[in-house]
């Protein structure tokens, strides 16, 4: 108990110290880019293993709005739109941005990002008798910030995006249930600006 109190006290004092030299401020990172991946379903049809391979690229954009809590750490919310071939999902996530390197004069360097949340289907339109639902979203990655004279920065980022979705299909003859569970695993390459 005493130990925890000590840790808390230490954290509070360190934060107070940080605040002396650093002022919290609003951060925005807006990026767009592509979700790169492929799909290769492998099914066993009467003993013959059959695999098809198709590459996939989809458009993605997102905006992170948050607070620069510490010199290197920003926390906030990320809202995006992902145009998958048969689903238009809108992930809403909590996100953090952490500077891995920091050149104080140039505002450039590497940063790590992590977003986790849930995609909603507000923008999606379903075909007759289909019902698409969003799902959990995870998006960790790294990025490069290139500072500009104006004070904002250009961003290039490479992240891994995992997005779940579920589709209720129309019932065919003799069917009592028919649904599809989807997991989109994509490499996301984005460019954007931060200020």
């Amino acid at each position: 108990m005493k130990k925890w109190a000590f840790v808390l006290l230490f954290l509070a004092s360190s934060m107070a110290q940080a605040q002396d030299a650093f002022k919290r401020h609003y951060v925005n990172m807006t990026e767009f880019g592509g979700l790169f991946g492929r799909v290769m379903p492998e099914n066993n049809w009467n003993g013959t293993l059959n695999r098809t391979v198709t590459n996939r690229v989809n458009f993605t954009m997102q905006t992170f709005n948050g607070v620069q809590l510490k010199p290197r750490l920003a926390v906030g919310a990320t809202v995006g739109v992902d145009w998958y071939n048969t689903a238009l999902l809108m992930p809403i996530a909590a996100g953090v941005r952490y500077d891995l390197t920091r050149n104080k004069t140039k505002k450039s360097g590497l940063f790590a990002s992590f977003d986790a949340g849930y995609a909603v289907r507000w923008l999606h339109a379903d075909a007759t008798n289909y019902e698409t639902k969003g799902g959990m979203m995870l998006n960790p990655g790294v990025g490069l910030k290139i500072g500009m004279k104006s004070g904002s920065a250009l961003i290039l980022s490479l992240t891994y995006k995992r997005q779940q979705a579920r589709v209720q299909n129309p019932l065919g003859w003799n069917e009592s249930s028919n649904f599809e569970e989807r997991v989109y695993n994509r490499m996301a390459f984005r460019v954007g600006v931060s200020f």
Partner: peptide, 16 residues
Amino acid sequence: WSCTDRCEQTRRYKRY
């Protein structure tokens, strides 16, 4: 983690 979408369709039906 591979960058491969994984989708599974599950159907329950009467088979004759």
